[in-house]
Amino acid sequence: MDNLTPSDLFSPSKARQQRAQAQDWAHIDSWLSYKYSGRSVPSFERNEETLKVLRELSMANERADESRITIERVEREALKEIDEAVRNEDDVRLLSKLRSSLTPEGEQALDALASTTVALNTPTANPETIAHALIQHTTTSQNLTNQLAYIQTLQDYLTKQHSLLRAQLNALGTNPAFVAPSNLQRQTTEQTRQTKHLRTKIREYEDKLSSLQLNQSRSMTPGSKYIGSADAIGEMLEQQKALDEVREKVEGLEREVGEFAGLPADREAARKEVGKLEVRLDEVRRRRDELFEGLVGK
Score class of each variant (00 low, 15 high):
T174G: 02
A177P: 00
P176V: 05
S163T: 14
Y157V: 01
L164Q: 08
Y157N: 05
L165M: 09
P176A: 06
A171M: 07
L164D: 02
L148I: 12
N170F: 10
A167P: 00
T174K: 11
H162C: 06
R166T: 14
T153D: 12
L164A: 10
Q155L: 11
I151D: 12
D156F: 04
N170W: 05
L158N: 01
R166Y: 02
L148K: 09
F178K: 02
A167C: 02
Q152E: 13
L165I: 11
L165W: 01
L148G: 03
L158P: 00
F178T: 13
T153V: 04
L164G: 00
T174E: 12
P176N: 05
A177L: 15
Y150L: 15
I151Y: 07
L154C: 02
Q152Y: 07
N175M: 10
T174N: 10
S163W: 02
L154W: 04
T153F: 05
Q155A: 13
T159N: 08
Q168L: 15
S163M: 08
L158G: 00
Q168R: 11
L154R: 14
Y157Q: 12
L165G: 00
A167E: 05
Q161L: 14
A177M: 14
Q168G: 03
Q152N: 12
T153M: 04
L154F: 02
K160M: 10
L154G: 04
Y157A: 09
P176H: 02
S163A: 14
L169S: 05
Y150H: 13
Q152V: 08
A149F: 04
L154E: 15
L172N: 06
Y157W: 03
Q152R: 14
Q168N: 04
T174M: 12
L164C: 00
A177C: 10
Y150A: 15
R166Q: 06
Q155D: 07
